[in-house]
């Protein structure tokens, strides 16, 4: 195993660790809002680290730029879906008289 492969392996393992932590948060946190925190943030970092590991393994700038795009699109999907789920959960649970934040 070369040095590059060793570093890439560390990034991949760290990425998997963040995914695992996000899943544990999904199971342990008490409600839908807290669970969304775990899924969006931990998985975002996990995906980023996996992309860095794969980019190092490929050693090609073009593959790295595609992985960067994949990460950015993944971020966009995660944050938009988290906002939509949170808004739906808030509107479902909030009584009509508490429609505003104040």
């Amino acid at each position: 195993m070369s040095v590059e492969e060793g570093i890439a392996l560390l990034f991949l393992l760290a990425g998997c660790a963040f995914y695992l932590a996000g899943t544990i948060g999904l199971l342990r946190f008490p409600d839908v809002f807290c669970r969304l925190h775990a899924l969006t943030k931990a998985d975002n970092v996990g995906l980023g680290l996996v992309c860095v590991g794969l980019a190092l393994l490929s050693g090609q700038a073009r593959v790295a730029s595609m992985l960067l795009l994949i990460w950015l699109v993944g971020l966009l999907a995660a944050t938009v879906s988290a906002h939509l789920i949170a808004r739906h959960a808030y509107e479902r649970d909030a009584p009509p008289e508490h429609e505003g934040p104040s």
């Binding site: 809002f33 807290c34 969304l36 925190h37 969006t40 943030k41 975002n44 971020l75 966009l76 995660a78 944050t79 938009v80 988290a82 906002h83 949170a86 808004r87 808030y90 509107e91 505003g100 934040p101």
Partner: peptide
């Protein structure tokens, strides 16, 4: 959009013509 990726915050809903953001 980006609030949900920052430490400890999640954007929930915009109120008052996009002037107030409800943050969890």
């Amino acid at each position: 959009s980006l609030v949900s990726l920052l430490p400890g915050t999640l954007s929930v809903r915009l109120f008052e013509h996009e002037h107030v953001l409800n943050v969890h």
